[in-house]
């Protein structure tokens, strides 16, 4: 099963929204996935335990370390766009894992 985490500044607003949206898109794509959410600070420390991190585009560079260790970092411009989320999941090959 794929393990992903959604992160945002406080861990209570946009990360929850990302979690809801990506859960919906993964389900649509038929991917078995566990989605957690947390603040960027906490997620940075846990990122290596996950296959992928979903964040607002603003936060991508803060996960450079995790990216170097093989975690897929997905930056989203429009958190409400299921189309963007689906495209980026496919681009990262997360629908094939």
């Amino acid at each position: 099963m794929l393990k992903v985490i959604a992160a945002c500044g406080n861990g209570m607003g946009s990360s929850q929204m990302i979690k809801m949206k990506i859960s919906k898109v993964f389900k649509k794509l038929g991917v078995d996935v566990k989605v957690d959410h947390n603040s960027v600070g906490a997620a940075q420390n846990m990122a290596s335990e996950y296959d992928a991190v979903f964040v607002s585009q603003n936060f991508v560079k803060q996960f450079a370390n995790a990216a170097a260790h093989g975690t897929v970092i997905v930056g989203l411009k429009n958190l409400l766009s299921e189309q963007e989320i689906e495209e980026k999941i496919k681009e990262a090959g997360l629908d094939k894992k």
């Binding site: 500044g9 607003g13 946009s14 429009n78």
Partner: peptide
């Protein structure tokens, strides 16, 4: 601290 990430969509 975190930048304008509160703008979640256009």
């Amino acid at each position: 601290k975190f930048g304008p990430y509160i703008v979640i969509a256009p």
